[in-house]
Structures are given as structure tokens and as C-alpha cells.
Computed example of a mutant assay.
Amino acid sequence: GIVIVLDNAGIHLGALTVFAGSVGVGVGFGLKNIASNFISGLLILAERPITIGDRIEVAGITGQVKQIRARSTVIMTNDGIAMIVPNEKFIDSPVTNWTYSDPRVRFRVPVGVAYGSDVNKVRDALIAAAREHPATLNDPPANAYLEKFGNSTIDFELIAWSEKMSYKPRRFKSELNFLIEKHLREAGIEIPNPQRDLHIRDGVIKVKTVSEPETGERSEA
């Protein structure tokens, strides 16, 4: 009876079936995402790869975990922006947890000094700069390594460990750089600009002076 009524009303059952099927597929995909995020949330709570307060990086987002909800997790970035991340991202994407098993984080600061500098003085100055910062840990101790001989500089790398500044890495590195500049300057060690030395073995270099063209209009004779 219903089929006859619909047919008399100009509604074809075939079109209605296609429409219902499309709606069902859309609802199915929506429920699939909801179920996936919900199950991922349960896995996060059970396995605890992240906890509230951890500093993490996932799907290109870096910040501190503020909330772990049924379908999503709230991450607060250093810019004070709350990012809502679907929980399934923590299951199917790599997650970097800076404070997972140990809140201590190692920071690396590259430093280049001029050739001719006393490398032992450079190392001592870098370590002293790291130790002066109140957030630098004594264990593991700060250290400095001579990495390589660059084109214009002797390249060192300062290693410093911190627990408090893992949530403010950019600020910590900036403050270390200020201290590094201070200690190198006090030790008389130069941080040079990029430069190249040109050695002429023989021959003559001709130098031609090119005058600038005159400006303004010339009056016609």
C-alpha cells in the first residue's frame, strides 16, 4: 500500500533507495570517526602514552597537554592557543613526549668562534655560561664539544640539561645565548662574521672605476 501511494505521488522507490543508501553511507563514516576517536581515547587512558601536563608533539602541533577527553585532547601551545586534537591522531601518528619517563631534557646550542681562539678557553666559557643559568641542572652536567672546523668559524656545541625549561625551550636557548655572548666577550673570544680570505699567488688584478651616470635632463643646444 505504501509503495502504491508513493508511486502515485510521483516518488520513485528506486530514487528513494539510492538517497537512503547515500545517507546511510554518510552516517556510517561519521559514526566510524566518532567510534575511532572514542576507542583511541580509551586506549590513551589505559596505556597512558600521554598524561596531563606532558609536553608533546603530534601532527605538527607542539605544546602542553591540558585535557584528555573522550574523543579529543586539548594541547596548549607556547602561543597560548588551545589546539583540539582528535584522539585517533595519538594512535596512528608518531608522538614525541618530551617528559614521558624523565622530565629532564637536553638542549643543544651551536656556537661559532673565530679561528685563532683558545679552544680550551672557549669550552670553559660555554660551560660557565650554562652553569650560570638557574634552570640548568648539575646532573647531568653541562658540557661543550668541538664539532668541526667550518668555513669561517670553529664550531662548538653546548649541551645543557634542564627540567623546568622543557616547556619553554625557545626562551631557555635565548637566555643561554645571552650568557654565552657575555662569557665569550669577557674571555676576549670573538664571534666573527662570515668571511673569506683571497690569496693572489701571481699576476696583476686590474681595477676599473666606473663613474655613476649623471642625473637630470640635458638641455638641447
Rank of each mutant, 00 (worst) to 15 (best):
V111I: 14
V119T: 14
P110D: 08
Y115C: 02
E190Q: 10
T96E: 11
K148L: 06
V85C: 05
V210M: 10
S101H: 12
T96D: 10
S101E: 06
F172Y: 13
F178P: 03
P194R: 12
I200N: 10
P192E: 09
S211I: 14
H199P: 00
R104H: 07
S162K: 03
S152V: 03
I68P: 02
L146V: 08
R170F: 08
V113E: 01
V207D: 05
F90R: 00
P110K: 10
T136V: 09
G80T: 04
R108C: 03
A130E: 04
D118M: 03
A160G: 02
K168M: 11
E186R: 04
D124N: 14
E212R: 15
L184M: 00
G116S: 02
Y100R: 10
A82Y: 15
M76V: 11
A130T: 04
S162R: 00
A114G: 05
V105Y: 14
N78V: 13
V74D: 00
D118N: 10
V210S: 08
K168E: 09
V111T: 06
P192V: 13
L137V: 05
E132V: 04
V105A: 12
P94K: 06
L137H: 06
P86N: 05
E214G: 15
E181V: 14
F178R: 12
R104T: 14
G150Q: 07
K121P: 03
D79A: 10
E212Q: 13
T153N: 06
Y167L: 09
P192L: 14
L137D: 07
G188L: 07
N177A: 12
R106D: 12
F172R: 00
V119L: 13
V122R: 01
P141E: 07
T77P: 07
A82F: 13
Q67S: 06
A187E: 11
F90S: 00
R106C: 12
D92K: 14
I91F: 01
N97K: 02
F90E: 02
N97D: 10
E88G: 04
A142D: 00
N87F: 02
T77H: 08
V204R: 13
E214V: 12
K168N: 12
R131Q: 15
V105R: 09
A70C: 07
D102L: 07
R106I: 15
Y115M: 05
E181F: 13
H183P: 02
G150L: 05
S93R: 15
G80A: 01
I189H: 01
S101L: 12
V122Y: 01
A130W: 04
P110N: 09
S211C: 10
Y100G: 04
G80P: 03
S101I: 04
H183Y: 12
R171F: 13
I81W: 11
K208E: 10
F178A: 09
K173S: 09
V210C: 08
D139P: 02
I75G: 00
E186K: 07
G150P: 01
L126W: 06
P103K: 02
I154V: 10
T99G: 04
S166D: 06
N138A: 11
Y167P: 00
K173N: 08
R185I: 03
V105H: 08
L184D: 01
H133E: 11
V210W: 08
R185G: 03
P103C: 03
Y100H: 12
